[in-house]
């Protein structure tokens, strides 16, 4: 089987989520990549070095600068004439593009796979990860998104792919990029962080959220996450949200502070290696999944923890 993997990149670098998608694709067969964007020659060269990669198709065009699905999908559909599967990381970009490709190919997408069971069978979470379904696709071509935490990352070095230019399809005229507010942070990105400290509604305000969590995160060199309630209340920006409908993370250590542990939150973090919970309610559901639990008031515990670390 010949697969085409969507390369997610930012600031000229291939993102980690892509590497997990490459691993998933390699379990299906030959791995080709698609690098799309504007001024992405460097990205294509970096992508060609990823272990196990064959051809790298690079489409360099202004119409692809912001990965608008209206412009990207027709390009992918063209390339799919010579590929059997389109594989994208289950990032917001992957989720935006892949279903558009699938519909154009008249294929039912398999979302957020956890494993490749065979050429046509995959496991995927449903009901916020409270059930794992094994599904078999009868479509001739497959369109798949990959859960980044479920696959090891392919090595960034060791490959010797060949780069081949393909032409973009131009601007669809259906949509345009207006602006982006992308948070710049020195902290590790949530989906790649080794340690995450995450805060919930209990913090009470944006000021307290940051005054308490930021120093702790600095000490642990951790990424900072949040529950939906904390994001809704404006304590943290949307890209901090961990959960069924936010980011899926699986760090070495996840520290949930003042988070009750609703199933929608657990869906995003319960595959973390070690879970630490700090909550004043000893019956909070978060303790059912926590390896280490500490019952008490976060306003007392967090400063003490930060100071003693």
């Amino acid at each position: 089987m010949k697969t085409l993997v969507w390369v997610e990149h930012e600031g000229g670098a291939v993102k980690d989520a892509t590497l997990a998608a490459v691993t998933a694709a390699s379990q299906l067969g030959e791995v080709h990549l698609l690098v799309a964007g504007e001024g992405v020659g460097g990205v294509a060269e970096a992508a060609a070095k990823i272990a196990g990669v064959g051809k790298v198709h690079v489409a360099d065009d202004a119409s692809l600068a912001h990965a608008l699905p209206e412009n990207v999908a027709p390009l992918v559909v063209d390339l799919m004439a010579n590929h059997d599967a389109f594989v994208a990381p289950a990032t917001t970009t992957g989720k935006n593009i892949a279903p558009r490709v699938a519909a154009l190919l008249d294929v039912m997408q398999i979302s957020d796979i956890l494993s490749v069971e065979s050429e046509d069978s995959f496991t995927r979470p449903i009901y916020a990860g409270n059930a794992i379904a094994t599904v078999q696709s009868s479509d001739a071509k497959k369109v798949i998104t990959v859960r980044g935490t479920a696959f090891d990352r392919a090595a960034r070095e060791g490959g010797s792919g060949t780069v081949e230019a393909v032409s973009a399809k131009g601007d669809s005229g259906l949509s345009g990029f207006v602006s982006a507010e992308i948070a710049q942070s020195e902290r590790p990105e949530l989906t790649s962080a080794k340690i995450i400290v995450s805060g919930g509604r209990a913090f009470g305000s944006n000021e307290q959220f940051h005054a308490l969590l930021d120093p702790l995160a600095d000490k642990l060199k951790a990424g900072v996450g949040a529950s939906r309630a904390a994001v809704d209340a404006g304590y943290a920006p949307n890209d901090y949200q961990v959960g069924q409908t936010g980011k899926i993370v699986a760090p070495e250590v996840y520290v949930a502070i003042g988070i009750s542990g609703a199933i929608q939150h657990l869906a995003g973090m319960k595959d973390s290696k070690v879970i630490v919970a700090i909550n004043k309610d000893e019956d909070a559901p978060i303790f059912q999944v926590a390896d280490i639990g500490l019952v008490g008031d976060l306003f007392k515990i967090v400063p003490e923890l930060t100071q003693k670390l």
Partner: peptide
Amino acid sequence: PRLKTLKVVEPAKRQAGVKVADVDELI
């Protein structure tokens, strides 16, 4: 349908761990 559900299972359960008494024990 294009996808056939072969089976649906529960995810692996996490064991609840231990509770610690204070910050020192946590560290």
